[in-house]
Simulated assay, not measured.
Amino acid sequence: MTGSASDQKFSLSKLQSLLGVSRAVLSGLVSAGFVKPVRGRRNELRFSFQDVVLLRTAYQLQSANIPARKILRSLERLRTSLPAELPLTGIRITAVGNAIAVRSGPAQWEADSGQLLLDFEVAQVKGDVAFLDSAPRGAREAHIQAEEWFELGEELTATDRRGAEHAYRKAMELLPVAHYGAYTNLGVLLCEDRRGEEALAVFDRALEYFPEDCQLHFNRAVALEELDRGDDALDGYRRCLELAPDYADAHYNLARLNELRGDRQGALRHYNAYRRLQEP
């Protein structure tokens, strides 16, 4: 996948809310080579519309226990069939027998052959992209409404925090599956507002859906610190580092907590790790 950063309009956090999967899962798919995003001005990952569709496809096939080699081969063929931008008619990608079929409006074409198990749509929502899993019409409409509430929450966070909280809770209520972005943003908002118990409850619920997500474990540990539960926070930061050893902020917070507890050796170890990770 090539192109300049300006052509890649989706951030990693936006992908999380679109696909409903954790940062760890997305990072794993990127590391496996399913897509090749570019770097933005601040060295952040940026994804194209094609990347979004390919990652969703890879996740579906991976969940169906299809071998990585078959997924890579399928995606390479699918990649050549995808437009650079989402057409006004939307796109439907589905399994037809043993092939991937791509349909845009009245046109339908085969993109791959092999053992594939997926069936989803890509549709316009306020000029952006939303995925609609095969489901009754009511569930699809709920998915769209949940994305709109989530986007409203993002818009309101800086100016109307109560309104943002309401919007995130509506997104969580409407979406049949866990909305990673809504859980994450709501938990952070509550923590920033010194509502630690509520934030902790949100992160605990999110971890039921995304137990291996390092960001959720980190955020939960921050909430525990707000509640003066330092020992539990230490465990949370350690769990974060088990999942993501290069998570610099977790090293820093562990160093700080160890220092407060008089564990100079532990503090030094994590401060050194933090400084090493901050080097250019």
Results as ranks from 00 to 15, higher is better:
T89P: 08
S74M: 13
K14T: 07
G97D: 09
L19F: 04
N43E: 14
A101D: 09
I71C: 07
L54H: 10
E85Y: 08
I91C: 10
E85G: 01
E85N: 05
V52K: 04
N43P: 07
R103D: 13
Q50N: 11
S27M: 12
G90M: 08
T57G: 10
I91F: 09
Q8G: 10
R56N: 03
K36D: 11
A84I: 14
L61C: 01
S17T: 02
G20H: 02
Q50P: 07
R39Y: 07
S22H: 10
V102C: 15
K14P: 00
K9W: 06
R42C: 05
K70L: 12
G20K: 03
A101G: 02
V38A: 12
T57D: 06
G40T: 05
Q62R: 13
Q60K: 11
R92H: 15
P67K: 00
I66L: 14
I71G: 11
S48A: 11
R46C: 08
G28M: 02
S22W: 03
K9L: 12
S27K: 04
S22C: 04
R73Y: 03
N65R: 12
S31A: 11
V96W: 04
L75P: 15
S27G: 05
R39M: 12
Q16Y: 01
V30P: 02
G105Y: 06
Y59C: 01
R79Y: 13
N43G: 03
L19S: 07
G20W: 10
T80F: 13
N65I: 09
I93D: 09
Q50H: 08
L61W: 08
P83H: 04
V102L: 15
A58C: 04
